[in-house]
Amino acid sequence: MGPDTFADARSSTGDGSPLRVERLDDRVVATLDRPERRNAIDQATVDALHALCAELEAEPRILILTGAGGVFASGADIAELRDRRADDARRGINANAFIRVAELPMPVIAALDGYALGGGAELAYAADIRIATPALKIGNPETGLGIIAAAGASWRLKEIVGDARAAELLLTGRTVEADEALAIGLVSSLHAESELLAAAHAVADRIARNDRAATMATKRVMRLPRAAHPDADLAEQAELFESPEKMRRMTEFLERRRT
């Protein structure tokens, strides 16, 4: 089900929310939409992400995250961030929202264009798959603002690009452009701006063709620490081995081979 099905989607009502949501049968497209602030992530955005996560926890679907106006997210809202104090930091306002995004039952695809900085980069890191345009500029300049990247970059980025590369990026705070992001595995593919959303839907289509239960099981085991393996994998596999869908799919595969 690709982007040409948008006409049939159920959409949010355009009430000024910073997160514009389009709902399809097997996926949701959520667009960060604060053009006057380059989609900076403020408290209202965090609240909208929590509401969307509650919906997708109750009714699991693939999530495509993107940004309006040629920008993914220029960072956290600095005006809000400047006024936050120690108790706010301990509450993990952005961190907990991004953890919830990362832990959604079905895969999350981030389609990145333009700036994905600070909290915007950390939201992108929470996705399972990231694709981008050649205009991408992604990074974590937090130390230059007197803080750390505390909404996931300190642990997620090294899982994506490795310890040494993550250390260099976080300690220097430099911005990575699209070609380097592709080379170091921070994004998996580059697409023209006009083709970005279609490319995200193509990834979602490929995921949607697979068995839903197996997809969710794969995501669950991938998120576990090393010490949980292989026991967790075997427990998930045991359950899938008893599923009618596994029998149906394998039978179809064998029958195709015979023809």
Rank of each mutant, 00 (worst) to 15 (best):
V161G: 01
A76Q: 09
N96T: 11
A86L: 10
T172F: 11
E159T: 07
A79L: 13
K137H: 07
A121D: 06
I99C: 15
L197A: 01
G146E: 00
I148W: 14
A204C: 02
A199W: 14
L190A: 03
A204L: 08
I148D: 10
A166H: 07
S154E: 15
G118K: 13
A202N: 09
V203A: 09
E122V: 07
E168R: 11
L157D: 00
A111R: 06
E168C: 02
V108P: 04
L157G: 07
R100K: 08
E195Q: 14
I148C: 12
V187D: 03
G162E: 07
D205K: 00
G75N: 05
A121S: 15
G139L: 09
N94W: 15
R85M: 01
E180W: 06
G114F: 10
W155M: 03
N210T: 09
I184C: 05
A121P: 08
H191G: 05
R85Y: 05
D205N: 11
A200L: 06
N94Y: 14
R91M: 06
D179N: 07
A202H: 07
A151L: 06
D88L: 09
I131A: 08
T143L: 14
H191Q: 05
I184E: 02
A86K: 04
E193W: 04
G152R: 10
E177D: 01
I207V: 15
V108T: 05
T175R: 02
I109G: 00
K137P: 01
V161W: 02
I93Y: 07
S154K: 12
R91G: 02
L136W: 07
A121F: 02
R85F: 06
R90S: 03
A150K: 09
T175H: 03
